[in-house]
């Protein structure tokens, strides 16, 4: 499996867009810095800054959309050019092929959130909006790692759709709908959508100020929601790949 994951990264050589997409991890930390500069606040609670820079739009829009595009790109070329048959002849196990792609998404997601964490720390501490504290930095890193890992699992349904379709337009469109649906479903029922459930897990301690939830946070139920969606996604991918 490790070899397959390494091979997946070899396939990404010269795919500049994938690496350029990582720059989108800087968007929210930078905009948050501008917001605090506009407000003229200094010495603010670090969590208040990180709420905007790392735990807000990043987890509902930017990261899911970036991962959705990545899923489509990882699979599109092999699907489009009928390259899969070259792999099946080797032979490469179809599910190992699928999971190797998933691990690339997971690693990418973690790197993305680590960049967000570093940028958040940089844009908050260097201009002096937040005073340096190891405790808050470690909190930020821990939460960003959690977001990175859980979001990749929450994006498995998009990966399954990318595997089942030849083009990349539909998976990208579904990603956008999927991300916006999480906004709509969050106040209705946060255990229906994996991204909402992921947000519930991240904010389980209710230690991020200014966030209120319509339901009580139930971490096992949130994990169950993600698991159910992931099982369906894996089954869909298995059925689709068996047909290819």
């Amino acid at each position: 499996m490790l070899e397959l994951i390494k091979i997946e990264f070899l396939k990404l050589r010269r795919r500049k867009l994938i690496w350029i997409m990582l720059l989108s991890a800087l968007i929210m930390p930078f905009l948050t810095m501008l917001l605090f500069k506009y407000r003229g606040q200094t010495g603010v609670d670090p969590i208040q800054f990180y709420k905007w820079s790392a735990f807000g739009y990043n987890i509902f829009i930017i990261l899911p959309v970036a991962l959705g595009i990545l899923c489509s790109m990882l699979i599109h070329e092999e699907n489009q050019h009928d390259m899969l048959r070259q792999l099946w002849i080797v032979p490469v196990s179809k599910m190992r092929f699928f999971f190797s792609k998933f691990f690339v998404v997971l690693i990418y997601s973690v790197i993305f959130m680590l960049i967000t964490a570093i940028a958040s720390a940089f844009f908050s501490i260097v201009p002096g909006y937040v005073t340096f504290e190891w405790k808050s930095i470690l909190y930020l890193l821990e939460r960003c790692l959690e977001i990175g890992v859980i979001t990749s699992f929450a994006m498995l349904p998009i990966m399954a759709i990318a595997v089942s379709k030849k083009g990349y337009i539909l998976p990208v469109c579904v990603t956008l709908v999927y991300a916006f649906c999480s906004f709509i479903l969050m106040p209705v029922n946060m255990y229906l959508h994996p991204l909402c459930s992921m947000a519930g897990i991240i904010m389980r301690n209710k230690d991020i100020p200014g966030l209120t939830f319509a339901q009580t946070i139930n971490v096992p139920l949130a994990f169950l929601c993600i698991c159910v969606w992931d099982i369906i996604a894996v089954l869909l991918a298995k059925i689709t790949l068996e047909r290819k």
Binding site: L10, K11, R13, R14, R15, E77, H81, D82, M83, R85, Q86, I89
Partner: peptide
């Protein structure tokens, strides 16, 4: 080889 072989275009 089956039909025209395809490979990764970016490599």
């Amino acid at each position: 080889i089956i039909e025209t072989p395809e490979f990764y275009p970016n490599l």
